[in-house]
Simulated scan of single mutants.
Amino acid sequence: MPLLASVRHGAASLGGALLATATRATSAIRPAAKPLHPRGRVRQGRLHRTGVEPALGTALGVEFLDAAGVDEVVVRESRALGLPQALPDIHGLAIRVPNADGSHGDLLFASTGWGRVSRFVLTASRSTYGRPMTTLLPYRTAAGPVLLGARSSGPETIELACSVGDGAWHHFAELRLSERDAGPEDLDSGGGISFDPVLNRLPGLDQYGWVERLREPSYDEARTHRGRG
């Protein structure tokens, strides 16, 4: 294994172990079936995709980003640590998108900055309105590493954008939130819903190996606690 790949592999594995430990510690301090994002509003939404090619000038090789369309989605808005509303917290936005084969893909966003560096840095605040969010870690695509971003563009409306690497943001969709909460048909068995970007993927948005090693231990820890709950 080349030295750089070996270093990246080790760093990602260590980071994944640390995130799993943090998830375990959070569940010990605040016992719950879900150690992260323990509460949140789950409701319906409609995703209007315009496609990224007109803005970017080229296709990314991912139908979800390239093609125009409308998707009926399930959305969760939550606070990562579940702190009281008066305290700053890391905010989360999860979107469940149907796939053509009947499965679904989950996209998870967390509050960050919007700049070339700050888009990869978590931030805490009291309110989400006007605050940007990103997927924090890039997806592997035919066009290179792609990061997804989200930010409010109006009442109950969220703009979705993407960037290749740390490049400029390009609009590709608008999420319009419904006042209707998700119904039983939208939820997983057991009456809840668990968003998991490691297991539930959108075609063309693949995980880098180092991203999987970073994410999987903490998601596995979270799945274990959901099973106990």
Rank of each mutant, 00 (worst) to 15 (best):
S153F: 04
S153H: 06
S153N: 13
G154Y: 03
G154L: 04
P155K: 15
E156L: 09
E156T: 03
T157W: 00
T157N: 05
T157S: 15
I158K: 02
E159S: 09
L160H: 02
L160N: 08
L160S: 07
A161P: 01
A161E: 14
C162A: 13
C162Q: 04
C162P: 10
C162R: 06
S163R: 11
V164T: 12
V164C: 10
V164L: 13
V164S: 07
G165H: 06
G165D: 03
G165S: 02
G165R: 02
D166R: 15
D166K: 12
G167I: 00
G167P: 08
G167K: 09
G167N: 03
A168G: 10
W169T: 03
H170E: 09
H170G: 05
H171F: 03
H171N: 08
H171G: 10
H171P: 15
F172W: 03
F172K: 10
A173F: 00
A173I: 05
A173Y: 00
A173S: 09
E174C: 14
E174S: 11
E174T: 15
L175E: 01
L175Q: 05
R176V: 15
R176C: 14
R176L: 07
L177W: 00
L177R: 00
L177A: 01
S178F: 04
E179C: 05
E179R: 11
E179H: 09
R180D: 13
R180A: 15
D181K: 11
D181E: 13
D181S: 12
D181P: 07
A182I: 00
A182T: 01
G183F: 06
G183S: 07
G183W: 08
G183E: 05
G183P: 07
G183Y: 01
P184L: 05
D186A: 14
D186G: 04
L187G: 10
L187T: 02
D188V: 06
D188W: 03
D188P: 13
S189R: 15
S189Q: 14
S189N: 12
G190F: 01
G190V: 02
G192N: 13
G192C: 08
G192T: 06
G192W: 06
G192P: 06
I193V: 15
I193A: 12
S194T: 12
S194H: 12
S194E: 14
F195V: 08
F195N: 03
F195D: 03
F195W: 02
F195S: 02
D196F: 01
D196N: 13
D196E: 02
D196R: 05
L199K: 14
L199R: 15
N200V: 04
R201S: 10
R201T: 01
R201F: 02
R201P: 10
L202K: 01
P203D: 03
P203H: 01
G204V: 00
G204M: 00
L205S: 02
D206L: 07
D206Q: 10
D206E: 14
D206W: 07
D206Y: 06
Q207Y: 05
Q207W: 11
Y208E: 03
Y208P: 02
Y208G: 06
G209N: 10
W210F: 12
W210Q: 03
V211T: 07
V211S: 05
V211F: 01
E212G: 07
E212I: 10
E212F: 07
E212N: 12
